[in-house]
Design a binder for these strands. Structure first.
Lengths: 348, 348
DNA sequence: CTTGCAATTTGGATCGATCCAAATTATCCG
DNA sequence: CGGATAATTTGGATCGATCCAAATTGCAAG
């Protein structure tokens, strides 16, 4: 009993029908008589039958495995954890299960886990690509006709669907907000210059500066790793310059908190002596002191949309790449200095 | 090419050998000639062969599926996200993949996903049980001989392995620390009274109070939901009493941050006017103001240990329940008031 | 040039479900 | 009641890999 598991044949024998009938019951076919159905179901309960999807998938098309893969680059980042939860929600409701793997930004890990997931018969993949992912990393999947949705980060050149937040519009709004508050020297902090997201956000920044009638100054762009520690260093560089900025937009919230640290190290109070806007709206943004003005992207919502997009493609049978941009919105809190900035510091 | 996938038979034909030989190559058997092996491997690469584990598992014992299930009660909580990452690390290294599902504390969801995972042939399960989980929820798994490791929360009565942090010792140390700093009226904040963890931590508190030669006062225990908002309310209740505490230990860090809020609402500064010790050591504990003194439990380490324990049981073939307690340690930062408390407030 | 033994290779049977064409049973109607 | 029609049920064949007993090959010794 411990090892010999119950199969359709056992059920069939016990219920006095054929295995084909049991199979029909399992699939909820309308062909089977109501009486037999209930009897078979009863027997299944009694014997503790467990459906073997592996066996079923062998006979069926691989698109019916009811398994999807989810690969994220950093699950310890609450942004991606939320994303995974959003995916999970939709996927569970659809009766799927998800393989979830964390790559820690390692391309090798990513390649390994995707291969492993393929072997296990996933019918689709949602991936937040590790840094440096290229089209070639998804070539095999795509040419096998597997639906793939890339989230958060684009994969240049790959024929996969994508779901990105509206980086350009978000950063544009952030700059616009600071400009309206009277800032004329607005810095840009953080991000790796060789990533597509950085370029999108920087473009939004640049266009925002232009739209506000200010001149774009390359010297106000302080790229660095998108971490708290590096954000602190970046603002230190900015404040060491001659013509200091009076406020700045940040690549993400982690950098923004780093800017808090860097300012305080110079005895400047964020939101009072210097205006800051972040990007992402992580949980801590609302509870930090001062509360962080930032661009909210709703990672859980993105996860839900990504899963829906993927399921749609799985059900459609054939997957044609589709690019979706999800809206973002400016959340005004305290760090931008609304009603808090010392007037003396203002330039205009 | 898009749909007709490559099988061992295709490989066999192309390489001019039998499918049995291809199978032996796949399993890395030493029986096969080195020349044939390389040729077969080359053909597999050329044809883009993808191993079908589902088919293989059908013939083999279910313990070899190389899939484990991971079920967590709240993935948006960074504690559990870290736990999942720890599990992922070990599991990936062992060549397994994991199904990960989030239950959001819903028992129904938990039941569903576990059933689904079983159907997909997991060879073991790590579960951080949803609130209210009872032995019956895991009965079917256990009697089927499936290795199960419960983490973080115990499942009373269930014959599953468990991996818990040392709640008693941790809370004991927290109280001891505050007592050494001179506090004589130490409160306990937060937690649901009907959970096992609460009882363990409360027992640690009580024993710590006794060991410090102080009298246990039930009126100093303020139970509440383990959230920030409720923590704030709890401390409000505490400070409204006649004989106020001068410090407190908290069920977890979220409650501790709530206590910060509640104190500030009464114009009291945490770590100066009132000493606080948390439990968990979440990421924000180190960066909050004041930095939170807390009991560190290393969730990622717990995840790793849990995965190792599970893999051990899977490999052992037969799973006998085992209970492991993981050590915790006191991390002294600022909120306990070391060198910061106003002397006047001290009672002794 | 056999024989003996190790090294390789191989053809079916098998895992647990699905699918299909065909068989069986039930129901209806003139 | 016979025959048509609808409603159910059923026995292989099948999916893609593994396993096993048996066959084949290679090679050195006699």
């Amino acid at each position: 009993m411990a090892n010999g598991r119950v199969t359709v044949i056992d059920i069939a024998k016990a219920a006095g029908v054929s295995k084909s009938t049991v199979s029909l019951v399992l699939q909820g076919s309308p062909l089977v008589n109501e009486g037999t159905r209930t009897k078979v179901n009863a027997v299944m309960r009694d014997l503790g039958y467990v459906y073997n999807r592996g066996a079923a998938n062998l006979r069926q098309s691989s698109a019916k495995s009811k398994i999807i893969g989810v690969v994220v680059n950093d699950l310890t980042n609450s942004f991606f954890a939320e994303l995974a939860v959003g995916i999970d929600l939709v996927v569970q409701d659809a009766g799927f299960v998800q393989f979830l793997a964390n790559t820690s930004e390692s391309l090798d890990r990513q390649t390994e886990v995707i291969a492993s997931m393929r072997e296990h018969g996933i019918s689709g993949l949602v991936v937040s690509p590790a840094r440096g992912s290229r089209a070639i990393n998804f070539k095999a999947l795509v040419s096998a006709g597997m639906p793939v949705v890339a989230v958060v980060r684009p994969v240049p050149g790959a024929k996969v669907s994508s779901l990105m937040s509206d980086n350009h519009t978000g950063m544009f709004a952030a700059v616009e907000h600071l400009a309206k508050l009277g800032h004329t020297r607005i810095a840009f902090f953080g991000g790796f210059e060789d990533t597509a997201i950085f370029q999108e956000r920087l473009a939004g920044y640049r266009d925002g500066i232009a739209a506000a009638g200010l001149g774009y100054d390359e010297g106000l762009v302080f790229a660095c790793a998108p971490s708290r520690a590096e954000g602190a260093k970046a603002v230190a560089r900015a404040m060491a310059a001659d013509d200091r900025p009076t406020g700045g937009v940040c690549f993400n919230d982690a950098v923004a908190f780093g800017v808090y640290d860097g300012l305080r190290a110079r005895r400047l109070e964020p939101g009072v002596d210097f205006a800051i806007v972040g990007f992402d709206d992580v949980i801590e943004a609302g509870t930090s002191v001062p509360a962080l003005t930032t661009i909210a992207v709703d990672p859980q919502g993105m996860g839900r949309r990504a899963a829906q997009l993927l399921l749609k493609q799985i059900n459609a049978g054939k997957a044609e790449a589709e690019a979706v941009v999800t809206p973002v919105r400016l959340v005004v809190r305290e760090s931008c200095g609304v009603n808090r900035m010392k007037p003396g510091r203002r330039s205009a």
